[in-house]
Amino acid sequence: MIFDFIEILFTAGFWAATIRIACPLIFATLGEVICERSGVLNLGIEGIMSLGAMVGWMSVYLGADLYSGVLLAAIIGALFGFLHAIFTVYLGASQHVTGIGITMLASSIGFFSFRLILPSSTTPPKIIPFEKINIPYLSDIPFIGEALFQHTPFTYIAFISVIIIFWLLNSTPFGLSIKMAGENPMALEAQGIDVLLVRTVSVIIGSALMAVGGAYLTMSAFDAFYFGMINGRGWIAIALVIFAAWKPERALLGAILFAGLDAYQVRAQQLAGAFIPYQFFLMLPFILSIVAMIVASKRTRYPKALLIPFRRGERH
C-alpha cells in the first residue's frame, strides 16, 4: 500500500500533470509579483483570471485563432489593470477594497457576457484547445521527455515568461524603477522618474499576465469555460507571492511545488478515496497556502511602500 503512494512520484504522468497545473499559477504569481514589487497589491487577480479565461475561450469559440485569443485575454486583463491603477495609483483609493471591487466587476462582466452570448447552454460548449507539441529529440528521452517536453505551446510560454520577467526585473532600468517604486518611491521621484507611471505600467503588465493565466485554463488545460473555474487560484497565487519572497524565480519554484502537491493529491485520492473523503484532498491546496505563509513568515519582508499611495509633492 505505502509503495503505491511512493510509486506515484515515479510516473511521468504525475510530473506532466504537475507542469500543467503549475502554469496558471506561474502566470498569476508572476503578475502579482510585478504589481506588488511596484507597491500595488492587486486583489483583482481572481476576477481578472476569470475574465481572461472567459475572453480567451470566447474569442476562439467565435472564430479567432488560439494565439489571438490569448492576446485578447491579455488586452482585457491590461484594461482592468489600468482601471485598478487609476483607482489605487492616481486616486490613492484603498488597494484592498479596489481589488475586491475589481474582482467583483471583472468576474461579473465575464459571467454576464458569457450568458449574453450563450443564453442557455447547460453543457458548456467546447473549443479545440492548444495541442501538444513534442519537442524534437528531447521528447524522446524516456521519462523526462514525457514529463517535460510533450506539452502545449502555451505551457512553454509560461516558462519563457518566467525568464522574461526575471530579466525585466533584474537586468533592465525599467525593472529597477519598478523595484524602487515599491521600496522607495521618493528616491525614484528625485531621479525625475514618474512614480505613478511606473506603477501604472507595472499593474497593467501584471494584470495582463493574470488574465493569460486564466486563459491557460480554458485554452490549454481544459477546453471549456465554467462558472467558478478559477476556484481560488488567484488567492493561492497571492499566498505564493509571499512564499516566493517577491522573486520571479522563486515564484516558479513555489508554483511547481504547489502544483506537484496538487497533482499528487489527485492521484492519492484515487488510492485512498475509499478511506478519506475527497473534500479533504481538495482542501489541501488552501491549507498548504496558509502553511506556506506561516513557514515564510520569519523571512517575509514586504516591499516597503506596498499599500502606500504616492502623492506628488507630499512627504512620506
Binding site: 481560488g232 488567492w235 499566498a239 488552501f286 505563509m293 513568515s297
Partner: peptide, 12 residues
C-alpha cells in the same frame, strides 16, 4: 501572516 489571504483561503 496577512489576514486578507488567510480569510479568503479559509472560505474555500
Amino acid at each position: 501572516v496577512d489576514e486578507v489571504v488567510t480569510t479568503l483561503l479559509t472560505n474555500f
